[in-house]
Design a protein around this nucleic acid. Sequence first.
RNA 1: GCGGGCGUGAUGGAAUGGUAGACAUACCGGACUUAAAAUCCGGAGGGGGUAUCCCCGUGCGGGUUCAAGUCCCGCCGCCCGCACCA
Length: 875
Amino acid sequence: MKTIERYNPRVEEPRWQMAWDDAQSFVVDSADPREKYYVLEMFPYPSGRIHMGHVRNYAMGDVLARYKRAKGFNVLHPMGWDAFGLPAENAAKQTGSHPKTWTYANIDAMRKQLKTMGLSFDWTREFATCDVEYYAQQQKLFTDMLKAGLVTRKKSKVNWDPVDETVLANEQVIDGRGWRSGALVEQRELTQWFFKISDYSEDLLSALDGLEGWPEKVRTMQRNWIGKSEGLHLLFEIVPDAKTVATTIEVFTTRPDTIFGASFIALSADHPLTAELAAKDPALQAFVEEVHRQGTATEAIEKAEKSGVFTGLRVQHPVKPGETLPVYVANFVLMDYGTGAIFGCPAHDQRDLDFARRYDLNVIPVILPTGADAASFVVGTEAYTGPGTAYHSEFLDGLAIDAAKKAIADHFAARSVENRPQGVVQTNYRLRDWGISRQRYWGCPIPVIHCDEHGAVPVPDDQLPVVLPEDVTFDREGNPLDHHPTWKHVNCPVCGKPARRETDTMDTFVDSSWYFARFTAPNAQTPTIPGVANSWLAVDQYIGGIEHAILHLLYSRFFARAMHKTGHLSIDEPFNGLFTQGMVVHETYRLGSGQNGEWVAPVDIQIETVDGERRASMLKTGEPVEIGSIEKMSKSKRNVVDPDEIVRTFGADTARWFMLSDSPPERDVQWTEAGIEGASRFQQRIWKLLHESIEIAAMSPSGATPAAEIDAISKLIHRGVHAVGENIEGLRFNSAVAQIYELSNGLAKFAASLEAAPSANGAAILSEGVAKLVQLIAPMMPHLAETCWAALGKSGMVADAGWPAVDQALLVDDTVVIPVQVNGKRRGEITVPKGSPNALVEKEALSLEAVARMLDGKPPKKIVIVPDRIVNVVV
RNA sequence: GCGGGCGUGAUGGAAUGGUAGACAUACCGGACUUAAAAUCCGGAGGGGGUAUCCCCGUGCGGGUUCAAGUCCCGCCGCCCGCACCA
């Protein structure tokens, strides 16, 4: 066997990338009559460099796209840039570069990097959300939504990020801190634009049930976020008091069945009535201020004891005539859920109980746990929230909780105060409207003009787009658009009198809420071409990180509905299949030992195994290095591996292969040197196998390999093709990879046997097998596959070759090996024709020496035979 | 606290209720080499006999079943999400 030159990805990869480009292999035509398939990976923010997470994400999408293409689908697989956002402005402040220049330079750099990966994107559809052509259409969507009543402007308490100097949506506040800056969020009153996502609370919730192609986890997270609860909206009459003109307090409860156990009312510190009372009550005022200081961070909430201040007011007990309840302001009542006021039933709510114990309020049990004794049941320090039946509750006595809820709801519905029923059944949602105003420059301008006379007027279509001015400065705090000398001064579209442009821009999550639709007609003069968009959508498989489980995915679902309502789409759910991939993680390394050593990068160290123990040291100095925990790749821990570097050293195919091979795609994958080297070795093994098969074929041998052996190889091939396809369909890329290994190992072994005993039929089946193997690896290692395909002398490109057909007959054996168990333990196996009658299988099984030994001359108690699968002899 | 997920060799992991550990990595032995790397061949869950056999083994304890990594019940541990939501 002559020496084969090593496969050189550095030469082959750019060559094939050019070939695909020249042939426009991945440019897709919406008019193509074949069945469509839309694969989409979450588009990146153009930070400047791609990272391994991108490589993993796009490798997965590309395998699916190339596979579906090979299966004959018309595949849409686009790429673009989520290009608005704060980092561009921060860069402007720090380096003086213009956000636009910075962003487009980053896009150019990242596009170049992505192109070295050989991804089958239709680059003709590429756009960035900061392209005026894109955000112009977004402004059109905004004005359409405004006209359709899906947008409102209201003064509200907002989350203010003091570092990023902007408003954040509730979804963007994590543990009381800004999701980007990490700064403690403050509460401010501002007038903001809102998308009325809460109009769709119920729909967004119930439609989750139909999203069977989504991970259960994401659906659960969205369900919790929307947070539906059903209960009763109750009116409590205030005992007339000079302190206030108010006559009722409204309360929302999910436990109206415990009304007979009510012992106090608690108002939020932000309740309007609280404000009214606090104005004349310094002690109350002080308490309100203290609550505001406490903050909403997780730690603060956990530490904070329940506390409150008695207002002096009392309300009538709604079902115990003559009794009254004290009204408190309490620190644990939230203004933005329900009505901002609760009735406290200490016996059956832990918070209420804590509060009642502190202020010595009544604790009246009204739900008796199933099986408990009414005379002896007491509530101590733990509230009882489990099932039971009502007692101490007059007309509710003896009813189970659900029945009691219904009975009390009926009771209140019948009563009224000033012609209003005293209690109505109500459904509450946690989901708030989506505040989209951002006091930043680098975003899509909100297309509205404020006129003293006509209020907020949407910019008319013929004056769109509202283009971001480029001559802005970042040398002082606040919004550059607001500082701009002329930009905001315009005339009112209605009356023509001087007016002011809205200077807020949209939350960048708006940009990413409809880009998937824009890809279907990226150059259209309208947001979408509905016919085209509807023919492509929904996205068949969407792939991205779990971190978008709520924000982006919920907003996109809302946008699809909003675009449906405004006539730009006719679907409601944008993503049929959703796959959330795991992260790329890596060991961490620190100088010396202990927790304080400086982080060091993987490239600066070497690792040896001494007595089975891995030891690390600095490459240059030999200084000992502590091997730390495995963490998500991050700059701060210096455990980042640069994809560029990997592509340069090993090639894109190797990087892709490794990202797909080791771990199930939904789990984290650990980057290791050994792993990437293993992937590289496999690439060379394929290359070698290919040349062996070519040489064997060229020898034109005259011998013949026994038919049984040929048949076995043939089956190996067809089973491999079948299994790899099935695994890709199920996104089990690691299993697909394992199947490819198995096939290539089998073929290599067969090739070795042919070298010893050459044969014509053997050479033929080997060639066939290798060609199919090349087709199987094509979605994962497309460059290597093209090179092999060409070396095999095949015409055209493997990218256009389709998926090999599977001969179903070869998937089944005519003889089967059946394991034989005795009492559930394997003791041997028999080989019988497939479909053998049980009598024969039984006879064969019992004739096994091992079975006879276990039986020890006694007849078996029972024999279980699963045809063609297993025999179990019970002794 | 609530919700979701996971727990299998040294490691990543595979296994429609039907031969546990496919495939890969690391490791060990051998071949080739002056040597190393690369490559090729072989070994390997643990324990015992050391042949072709036996026992144990998928976090722990029970259960269902002819048969359990897989299903059910109860624990333990880890990860993720949400959380003063009335």
